[in-house]
């Protein structure tokens, strides 16, 4: 097939659970591979995305790098999709939104139980943490949302086949879950 649909994926402040769930489409992946080509994604190790049709974003935004990656995706993807609870509302990482950042870092790296060599990591390579975790629709425009923690394999399948076959994507009742 000459022009395959180009899909990029990434995990920001997520746990890769959404990516694992996507892989749960199992042998349907072969069907997908006939029409789809993966660009930047943890599945390909391509580091930056070039012109893509669909970008799937797992996870919210918790540090400066997340913001850059998210903007790169928005710039390069015709359709940008928030995948999973964390991308949609911050999810579990957003629990820290109620605790000042300094207290979080102290607890994790200085005073926490079992901490050895207490020191807050400050390597220049490390992205700076944002004060709060944000859902991605607060940073860039998002075209579609796939709720769930994670969205089931069937959600990915329904959404992608709708798009690929030229239908307006929709999720029936059984596929809509926030948990």
């Amino acid at each position: 097939m000459a022009n395959k649909i180009r899909v990029a994926t990434t995990s920001l402040a997520g746990c890769f659970g959404c990516h694992m769930s996507f892989l749960d489409i199992d042998e349907r992946m072969l069907q997908l591979a006939e029409v789809v080509e993966f660009d930047r994604s943890p599945l390909t190790d391509i580091e930056h995305c070039t012109d893509c049709d669909i970008g799937l974003i797992e996870g919210g935004v918790c540090n400066s790098e997340n913001v850059h990656v998210l903007r790169e995706f928005r710039k390069n993807c015709k359709i940008l999709v928030a995948v999973g609870a964390c991308a949609i509302n911050g999810g579990l990482p957003a629990l820290r939104n109620h605790i000042p950042l300094e207290e979080c870092l102290n607890e994790s790296y200085i005073e926490g139980i079992g901490v050895e060599n207490p020191k807050i990591p400050s390597d220049i390579e490390l992205p700076l943490l944002l004060n709060q975790v944000h859902p991605i629709h607060e940073v860039v425009k998002i075209d579609y949302f796939l709720p769930g923690c994670p969205p089931s394999a069937d959600v990915f399948w329904k959404f992608l086949t709708d798009l690929i076959e030229g239908r307006e994507p929709s999720l029936p009742y059984e596929l809509v879950h926030y948990d």
Binding site: A85, S170, Y178
Partner: peptide, 26 residues
Amino acid sequence: HLCPGCEKTGNCQLQAVGYHLNMLDN
């Protein structure tokens, strides 16, 4: 509302209304 960590999930009317209205985002 962090549904994945909420004991009420699946039995919650707020969530169920969201499902009923096909609410996919905030």
